[in-house]
Each structure stands twice: as structure tokens, then as C-alpha cells.
Computed example of a mutant assay.
Amino acid sequence: MSRNTPREWSYWTENKLQILSEYLPAFNVAAKKSHERIYIDLMAGRAQNISRSTGEEIAGSPRRALETSPGFTRNIFCELPQNADQLEADLRARFPRATFEVVPGDCNDTIGVTLSRYKSLSKAPTFAFIDQQAAEVHWTTLQKLAEFKSYGTKAKQWILMSPVMIARGTRGTNNAMVRKRVTQLYGTDDWLRIQRAKERRLITPKEYRAEMVNLIRYRLAEHLGYSYTHRIPMLMPNRTEIYDMVFATDHHAGDNIMRHLYKKAAQREPGMMEQAVLRAKEERIEKSGQEGLFELEPSEPKVSGEILWQPESHWDPSTRPWW
């Protein structure tokens, strides 16, 4: 794919970004007494993105951060060199007066120097968005973010975790490299205990996904000292978790805000899922040359008003009998 080709996103990504759009202004309102507020996007992505379901343009996380009102006083966007220049040019054109920097390179290599440039602002409320695909971020990077604040609560972190992608990678030809990266993500090889339990069929695939997400939550809480962690699964049409969003915070206000938004996202998801399925059916009909013979209409949501997400505590993985 050319670097100029817009990236296609599925409805679960749109739902995730909607949560981000709703959380960022709430974060800044809660932090309104602070003169400085820092947003860090470790994997900021391409400048151009479109919806796979509708073909419409979707604003990525950097644009959403810069569009936030009230806004952040500092915005840091990390991205690989092949995309960084185009991302910066796009953002400069859209937000000529905004205060931000695009940091080219692997965020695991650049985060230390980047944070050191903002050392004088280490008391500022800080939010970090870690939108990885599988296991690109290192535990040492999460640790540096947690230790950045010299006063008050730690930097809030919102991390994409995809056991599905990890499981797929461990079966591939680059098996050894993937396993090394996953160990770097967790900062321990304890995840291999979960992997072996799955391979020996001691746990189901669903249990594997839950255990892999729990392990990062456990380490964020017990090793980095975060008071609250949450997960929300992003579901495919077959109800399989394509990935989870894990939130870590020290502050009760951030916890309450994200709880509310997670519940809204869970209620929103079935309708988005149905629209995506409907669009896929329309495309199949168009390709078959039978458009006009069928008229597809979305059904009424069957879950309106239902609470589909409830917070669950993390657990000590070593208590599992297969551990």
C-alpha cells in the first residue's frame, strides 16, 4: 500500500475513535485548573483514513486531539518515518495555529528523549494513546510514561491489546520474532504460560483472549501502580473480540468518565455492526449485477437502552490451575 493511499477502517475502529473524541474534552475539563495539559499519541497513524463501510473520510486520533475543545496545550504525535512527514504536512495545513510536534521514528526508541524535552511540564495532566496493532509497544515505554509525572497522578494510558493478532503471529513464519515482541510488550515471558495453556487446550480461545488482556491489566496495576484499569472488547460481527481497549488511571474522575463512555460505546456497537454487515451485503449484490432486485433496510436495534458493559476487576493470573 502506498503511503498516500488512505487507510480503510472498520466500524470497531470508528467506535474506538468516538470514545477518544468524547474522552479528551472531558479529560481537559477535569484538568481545567492546570495551565498545561499534554496529549501523547505513540502511533499516530496516516494522515488520510476512510470508513470501510461507507467510504467516507474518518478523522484519525491526531486530528481529534487537535479539534478537542477545551484543548491540550501540548500535543505529541509519534509515527514511523515513512508516514511522519505526510502526517505533519496534513496537520499543519489543517491546524496552522496549533501547538504540536510530530516525532518520526519508533516510539520505543524516541519516547525517552521526547519526554525529557517536556521535563519542566511533568506536573501537567497527561494522557497517552497507544494504538498498536498487535505487540509494537514495549513495556519499558509504558513504564516511562507512567514515571513521567513528578507530581500527582500518573499519566493516563489507553492501550489497544489484540490477543487475536498475537495468536495469529505466533502461528506464522516469523514465530520467534513475534514471541520476542510479545515478551517486550508485557515486560515478562509470563504470557507464554497462557500461550501454552491455549496450545494444550487447557483454556478456550475466548479464555485465552481474556487472560492475555488481564495480564497487561495486572502488570499495569501491580507493577506500575495504577489504581484503576478497565477493558472493553471491540467485537467482530461473529461476536469475537478483535481487540480490547485497556484504560489505566490513578484518578477517580478519569475512571468515572471512562466507565460512562465505555457503556455508551457498548450500546453504540450493535448498530454500527449491523450497518457494516448491511454494507457488505450491498457490495456483494452490486458485484453480482443484481442491484435493484433487493432492497436492504437495517432492522431496529434490539438492545436500545440495555447496559452491555460492566467493569470487571483484574485477577492474579498465577492463581489459575494451569499457570
Rank of each mutant, 00 (worst) to 15 (best):
S51D: 00
I40K: 07
P125V: 00
L115S: 11
L42Y: 03
T99L: 12
M165I: 08
G152W: 04
I166C: 11
R171H: 07
Y118R: 10
C107M: 10
A59D: 14
C78I: 00
K32Q: 13
A89L: 12
G105Y: 01
L115H: 12
Q86A: 15
F72Y: 07
S162W: 11
A134E: 05
F72H: 02
F129D: 01
H35T: 14
I130K: 07
A155H: 04
A155D: 15
T141Q: 13
R74Q: 13
Q86N: 10
I166H: 05
V103E: 07
K119C: 04
K33N: 13
I50L: 05
N49K: 08
F77R: 05
W139M: 12
C107W: 04
A134N: 09
G152E: 03
P70A: 01
R94K: 08
A93I: 00
R97Y: 14
A44N: 07
A65C: 08
S51V: 00
K149G: 13
K154F: 04
E101Y: 08
A98K: 07
Y39R: 06
Q133N: 14
Q132Y: 11
T170L: 14
Q143R: 12
N83I: 03
I50C: 01
F72E: 03
A47Q: 10
S162E: 09
A176M: 08
R94V: 02
K33A: 11
A124S: 09
T114K: 13
A167H: 14
S120L: 08
N174G: 05
E36R: 12
K144C: 07
E56C: 01
P96H: 10
P70W: 10
A98Q: 01
L142F: 08
Q132M: 04
S120Y: 07
H138L: 07
T73F: 09
A89I: 11
Q86P: 02
P70T: 10
L115N: 15
A59Y: 15
C78W: 07
I38E: 15
W158T: 01
D106E: 00
G45M: 09
K119V: 06
T140K: 14
S51H: 04
Y39W: 02
S120A: 05
R92D: 05
P70F: 08
G112F: 07
Q133H: 06
D109Y: 10
